[in-house]
């Protein structure tokens, strides 16, 4: 399919970007890495006469970590940059892993974490880890600024609560507490350069006695949106995490997913893999949490 002609605007500030959005209103799209947007324009008939690029907006590619504030990922920060940021690698291993294995090196160099979330694909690799870490999005529009919890963000495949004239300024992720372990596992047919057929992220936070204070488990590619596994989380919280319980909790994650049959995998396979990966993720989280405590 032929690519339609369009104009690219390159504002230097968020205010200018917001002005451009409201000036053109319809037929305008935000451009960050462009790895999803341009494919949609080229292959899926998405029409946009104006693209407002966020790539020259000052400060929008910043990634910062401080123990007191946690992690702030700028709205135009690249996947590859996030994946190799020392603060991310040290405190958010599940996110660092997702950012360094998803898609291809070229896409990771261009694509952004915010774009991965806003695109709202059920298989978005960064969504499950960020759900596990309790991330929020900071959205700005001309009238002001609001914070949206990631678990309230997705509405369906390709759909989110973000308004057309809003821009994701940043993603905020709380600092992980002590005695905390987190991990992300994904499966795809190719070992590299592939889209996930199933993805599972987890986080375990232990108390001083070694019981589970908090558990977060999230799934990708097995429901219309990335989802949390509340049942498994509740099974673990307040309990001593012995192996049998981890296995049971991992198995219960299957009840949180609603996978479909498609060209990438059957629903039955995805269901089985949710269990296998959830169990692996929980074991890994526990090992990290216990290792961190000693």
């Amino acid at each position: 399919m032929a690519m339609p002609h369009f104009t690219v605007h390159q504002p230097k500030t968020l205010e200018q970007a917001l002005d451009l959005l409201s000036r053109h209103r319809s037929g305008v799209k935000l451009l960050a890495g462009g790895t999803d947007l341009l494919m949609k324009m080229r292959q899926a008939g998405l029409k946009a006469e104006h693209l407002v690029s966020l790539n020259r907006v000052e400060g929008l590619r910043t990634i910062s970590y401080r123990d007191e504030d946690g992690l702030v990922i700028g709205g135009a920060a690249r996947l590859a940059d996030v994946g190799r940021h020392p603060g991310v690698a040290q405190h958010y291993p599940a996110l660092a892993h997702a950012c360094s294995v998803m898609a291809t090196p070229q896409i990771r160099n261009m694509g952004t974490v915010a774009g991965n979330l806003v695109n709202a694909a059920p298989s978005a690799d960064t969504a499950a880890p960020l759900l596990a870490y309790g991330a929020s999005l900071v959205a700005v529009e001309r009238g002001g600024r609001r914070q949206i919890k990631l678990q309230d963000f997705f509405r369906g495949p390709g759909l989110s609560v973000l308004e057309p004239l809003e821009i994701v300024e940043a993603i905020r992720v709380p600092a992980p507490p002590a005695r905390c372990g987190s991990a992300y596992e994904r499966l795809s047919a190719r070992s590299q350069v592939d889209i996930a057929a199933v993805g599972v992220a987890g986080l375990l936070n232990l108390d001083l006695e070694g019981r589970v204070l908090r558990c977060r488990l999230a799934l990708g590619a097995v429901a219309p949106t990335p989802v949390r596994c509340l049942e498994a989380e509740q099974m673990l919280e307040g309990q001593a995490p012995d192996e049998a319980l981890l296995m049971r909790a991992g198995a219960s994650c299957v009840r949180s997913c609603q996978p479909i049959d498609d060209v990438r995998a059957s629903a039955a396979f995805r269901r089985a893999m949710v269990q296998v990966l959830a169990q692996r993720v929980l074991k890994r989280c526990l090992a990290l949490a216990q290792g961190g405590a000693s």
Partner: peptide, 23 residues
Amino acid sequence: ILDQQGRTLNTTFLDYKMPTAQD
């Protein structure tokens, strides 16, 4: 992969899984 009407469903390298150098 073809559907019941004989249309090919995986028409990009995203879903036609050819091994890469890394495999």
